[in-house]
Amino acid sequence: MNAAVTFFNPRGQTRVLPGFGLSLGYTLVYLSLIVLLPLAAVFIQTATLTWAEFWAIVTAPRVVATYKLSFGAALAAAAINVVFGLMLAWSLVRYRFLGKKLVDALIDLPFALPTAVAGIALSALWAGNGWLGGLLAPFGIKIAFTPLGVLVALIFIGVPFVVRTVQPVLEDLETELEEAAASLGAHRRQTFTRVLLPVLTPALLTGFALAFARGVGEYGSVIFIAGNIPMVSEITPLIIITKLEQYDESGATAVAVVMLLFSFIILMTINLLQAWAGKRTGRNR
C-alpha cells in the first residue's frame, strides 16, 4: 500500500483528511474486478484469433449491414433529437404552459423505463394496427418491423440526452446578451442564429454525442420493433447475441471489440466536447 501511496502522491504532500489509502485502494480494486478485468477479457479472447480471422468476422456482409443500420439509425435519431430536443428545452425554460412540470418530469422517462417495456410499447404503438402505425398504414408507410422502427426506438431512447444537456445552459444564460443584441438592432432571428446558437452549440453537440453513443449500443428497446431481418433490420448488438447462441464466442467477441473501440472513441470525444463547453460557458459540468 505504501508504494502505491507514493506512486499516487509523487510530491509527498501531507494530506489533512484521513482515508486516502483506504478509499482509493477500495475504488481501484472494485473497479478492476467489476469493470476493467472483465472488459480486458474481451480483448484477450480476441487475441486467440489471427488478424485474418478477426478481419473476416468483422467485415462479413451480414455484420457490415448491421453496422450501417446501428450507426446510421443512431446518427439520424441523434440529429432528430438535436432539433426537437432544443425546441423542448426552449419551451421548458422560456414559455409558460399548462402541465409544464409534468412534461419536465416525464422527459426522463426513457432513462427510467426498462428498455424491454419501451420495446414492446413502441412496437404496439407503431405496428400496422397500433395507435400511430394505424394512422400511417393507409398511406403505405410501415414503421414497425422495418429499419424505420429502429429509428423510432432510438429517437425515444435519445430524448432526455439533448434536452437535459441544453436545458441547464439555457437556464444559466443571462438575458443581457439578448438585450444587447436587440438594442443594437438585431432581429430576433439574427439574435438566435448569431448570439444564442453559438453559446448552445457545445451543449447541443454533447447531447448529440451522448444520444448517438447510447443509440449504437441500444438493445432492449430496439429488438421488439426492428423485426430483426438479416441484412435489413438487424442491429449490431443482436449479431453478438446470435453468435453467442450459436456457441461462436470468438465471433461474438470480435464484433464486441469493434463496438468497444468505437465506444471509447465516442467517450473521449464527449470528454473533449464537455471540456470545450465548460470553457465556453464557464460551467464545469
Binding site: L24, L39, A41, P237, A256, L267
Partner: peptide, 29 residues
Amino acid sequence: FRGQELLGTLIDLPFSVSPVIAGLIWVLI
C-alpha cells in the same frame, strides 16, 4: 493524486458499453 481525471473517466466506462457486451464479458470469464 496522479491519474485523478483518468479514474473519473474509467468509472464512467460502463455507461458507454452496450448492455449486450456487459453480459458477454461474464460469459467469457
